[in-house]
Amino acid sequence: MAGLTLISPALADALTRWTDHLRAVDGAAAATVIAYRRDVQGFLTFLTEHHGESLGPAPLARLTISDMRAWMAHERGRGVAARSLARALSSVKGFAGWMAERDGFDATAILAARAPKYRRKLPRPLAVDAAKSVIDTVELQSQEPWIAARDVAVVTLLYGCGLRISEALGLTGDVLPLGDSLRIRGKGGKERMVPVLDAARKAVAHYVALCPFDLPPGEAVFRGQRGGPLNPRMIARAMERTRLQLGLPASATPHALRHSFATHLLGAGGDLRAIQELLGHASLSTTQAYTAVDTARLMEIYRNAHPRA
């Protein structure tokens, strides 16, 4: 919080009110709010040092494109990657836009600043047979039957329903027994309905039957060895051991199963907009990354079949 001492009380208060708004109105996750606050705080601290005085709302409105470029050059000079700087600029624009609506603040210079270009990292999905092998093999990583069944249930939900690991581990006893669909609360508190495959239903039911702990409504479905909510690191470790056993690359993580769900649906002719809804992506552009993955895979197959091409 040291940076706040360089910011005027009025701006510090505005920053607090904005993050409160993100939590209460937008339903932003705690980690997201912390990241946004850190980004904006760093921006305001730079401007205070850049101008040699404590900056208030009025001087902030007089910022120019040159000021924005100076900040971005400073961040790149500190070794901040283009992708991280683009995210920080997005946070700053969000804060400036909020102030513009509340206080009549002219945010033109900030909102007009262009984010640095960066190459979006493509998801690295597993092949269909590799994803199935993961589900078949992950149960071999524990000698405790209920833990083996638990790990199978989790990875089946990740691949069969396209859930994030936080979403799968956030399920509570209210959803038991699983029906034909699940109501998932994803990022930003957004809800979506996802269909549940029979394989996922059976995997969860098998785990529930073996689990030595009660799984009442309101409490976590997936439990750790001592009965507390399951730590996602435990699933990551099971995946690591499975990956080594199957000879899969380091990219074969729990999240890769979600990527695989989307890529395999797309490859089977799934509609991009429908996949966006299933994944809970706020923007279609995020889902469109999977079209690049599919194209890249097709080109790899082509090059292997035609090595002289």
Results as ranks from 00 to 15, higher is better:
P125D: 14
P125E: 13
A127Y: 13
A127G: 15
V128R: 12
V128K: 12
V128T: 10
V128M: 09
V128P: 07
D129G: 13
A130W: 09
A131N: 12
K132C: 07
S133I: 00
I135C: 05
D136I: 05
D136Y: 02
D136F: 05
T137C: 09
T137F: 06
T137H: 02
V138Y: 10
E139M: 13
E139D: 14
Q141K: 11
Q141N: 08
Q141L: 09
S142V: 09
S142L: 08
S142M: 05
S142K: 12
Q143M: 14
Q143W: 13
E144M: 12
E144V: 14
E144N: 11
E144H: 11
P145A: 12
P145I: 10
P145L: 10
P145D: 08
P145W: 14
P145M: 09
W146I: 07
W146G: 07
W146K: 12
I147P: 03
I147W: 00
A148F: 07
A149S: 12
R150P: 05
D151S: 07
D151Y: 03
D151P: 10
V152C: 04
V152S: 07
V152I: 07
V152D: 00
A153T: 00
V154K: 02
V154G: 02
V154H: 05
V154E: 04
V154R: 01
V155P: 09
T156Y: 10
T156K: 09
T156C: 04
L158G: 01
L158M: 11
Y159T: 06
Y159N: 00
Y159A: 01
C161A: 13
C161W: 00
G162S: 11
L163M: 07
L163R: 01
R164P: 03
R164C: 01
R164L: 09
R164V: 00
I165A: 04
I165K: 06
S166Q: 11
S166F: 04
S166C: 04
E167Q: 08
A168Q: 04
L169M: 01
G170T: 03
L171S: 08
